[in-house]
């Protein structure tokens, strides 16, 4: 399986994402500079965290106008798995690829620590290796991770099972403790916590690895004969 990691000016989790796919998972991965990126031929696209364009205007807003996001829209429509973490999540929201928005943390603090997440939906291509209700330990590192959507959107998210991860102890004020959501089709996942920073025991948790393993397993079942 071949992963693309899209690198924006100000991305800083691109190497972690690359490491997770290439080294921890043992699959093919490439880092693509946003300006030259051609997303054709990749089986999954990873949008890493960081501070694209210095968080100017709103986190992810400037990146969402780039040409590579046009390609992302086409790939999302075509069903290619897309994972956006942290600033990557912000970019996907600003692009309209996912519903909702992210506000400043309720307590106005940049927070950087491990959080317990609850796997609310394990019937996605990102979470099929987890058990439903499983509690996993994944680090967060953000200042604008306070997920917001109106009640109508929240009802729709619940109805379509788009809430994939929630916080066990909500750290940032997110509506309905939401830590990660998918699009309606289920092939685009955005989340504030960093699964790519929890892929081996030496990082204090390997709970994030199963997310990447789920992607590989689902890809194999769909595209590799006899798998």
């Amino acid at each position: 399986m071949k992963f693309a990691v899209v690198v924006f000016p100000g991305s800083n989790c691109d190497r972690d994402m690359y490491y997770a796919a290439k080294d921890a998972l043992g699959e093919e991965a490439e880092m693509l500079w946003y300006k030259d990126a051609n997303l054709d031929g990749y089986d999954a696209i990873l949008i890493p965290g960081g501070f694209s364009y210095g968080d100017y205007l709103r986190c992810g807003a400037i990146a969402s106008t780039s040409n590579v996001v046009k390609q992302l829209r086409e790939k999302a429509d075509a069903g290619v798995p897309i994972l956006g973490v942290c600033n990557g999540f912000q970019i996907l929201l600003e692009s309209g690829l996912l519903p909702g928005a992210l506000l400043r943390n309720e307590k106005l603090k940049f927070m950087c620590h491990f959080e317990d997440l609850v796997v609310e939906n394990n019937e996605t291509i990102f979470t099929s290796s987890y058990k439903k209700g499983e509690v996993i330990s994944i680090p967060i590192a953000h200042n604008e991770g306070n997920y917001y959507c109106d009640e109508e959107t929240l009802a729709r998210l619940r109805e379509n099972n788009q809430i994939v991860f929630t916080y066990k102890n909500n750290p940032n004020g997110s509506v309905a403790d939401i830590a990660g959501v998918t699009n309606e089709k289920g092939n685009v996942l955005g989340m504030m916590p960093h699964p790519e920073r929890a892929v081996e025991a030496i990082l204090n948790s390997a709970d994030g690895l199963k997310l990447f393993q789920s992607l590989v397993q689902n890809w194999r079942e769909t595209y590799v004969a006899g798998a």
Binding site: T65, P99, Y148, D150
Partner: peptide
């Protein structure tokens, strides 16, 4: 609508 404001919030 496209950039200067985020109509969601």
């Amino acid at each position: 609508n496209k950039l200067l404001a985020n109509p969601v919030i």
